[in-house]
Design a protein around this nucleic acid. Structure first.
Lengths: 155, 155
DNA sequence: TGGGAAACGTAAACATAGTTGTCGAAATGG
DNA sequence: CCATTTCGACAACTATGTTTACGTTTCCCA
């Protein structure tokens, strides 16, 4: 009588939910002045943070090589979201920092994500929304985020 | 008093949960005789199904071009998971079918997914696990699965 | 019946991820 | 002071996707 759903539905819907949020976010970002930012860029800028960082450290945070991190930073630089500056204290290092435009996109993303969460809470009700997030947090406890999606998903 | 979590945590953890399940699945698949199958391959084989299908239809189901579907089928064919046969009723079409090896990997995946779901249910308890899945299903209602992850995630 | 339109599969060219390997420049430390 | 380490950049390669194009086969309608 329990009739549990098949196990393969779970990963499918987790991915579906993720994609749904990210797609909605970027539709809204495009509408509000950031049409060129891609899903990956958001994660990278989040990893760069307000403080700024280096390519090596960025790669470490995202679980990719420093070369891949450097390439992505180059793209973001062309789009005007980040800038590279030499470290006065260490001539080897170059600090990657968010530009005002980049900071704005990050702040906007945070606002839109909150709106999207509110919409989801409207579907489930605040009670179950809270429970849903608590459970999801419990299930993914201790996991670290990795950005190596392309190579990981299909080798 | 409500102190809702920030909205950006939701997509992050959805992706984390997805990746967790898929990584565990493939670790187990590798252990049980399928070391070469990649995350993407599982979704493609699932889309091919027991009946078999064509490259065009496969692309349609996965939300990718028929050419991309054809390429992936070629890879899967080399690995021995699928085979291509001419359609006796239509010389234009070529039916892609799972080999016994492919069918076995699909059945094994289903079993492992059920085991993983049971492990998650062990964390939350059967009650909340059921509620979690119900809510997730409600939130992702009507969404269609797309396999164009590489091009979608980073443009 | 015949010919144009549509569908299928394949290939080439291109763009974008990632990776490894290599290298020069700068900092570190024994 | 020299050897080792670290950082950033470049080249070569793989894997994914896309668009464009083409030859073959089928379908449909005038």
């Amino acid at each position: 009588m329990s009739s549990d759903p098949p196990g393969f539905e779970l990963p499918l819907r987790l991915l579906l939910g993720f994609r749904m949020l990210i797609d909605d976010l970027h539709a809204e970002l495009a509408r509000r002045g950031h049409p060129d930012v891609r899903p990956m860029h958001g994660f990278v800028m989040q990893a760069i943070g307000v403080e700024g960082t280096t390519a090596v450290e960025l790669g470490r945070r995202l679980g990719i090589s420093k070369q891949a991190a450097g390439k992505t930073v180059g793209t973001l630089e062309q789009l005007g979201y980040v800038e590279r500056a030499c470290d006065p204290g260490d001539a080897r290092r170059k600090i990657v920092r968010l530009t005002p435009y980049g900071l704005e996109s990050l702040a906007l993303s945070a606002r839109v994500f909150d709106e999207l969460r509110a919409r989801w809470a409207g579907t489930l009700g605040p009670e179950r929304m809270r429970a849903f997030e608590t459970d999801l947090r419990a299930l993914t406890e201790g996991e670290t985020f990795r950005l190596d999606v392309p190579g990981w998903f299909g080798a």
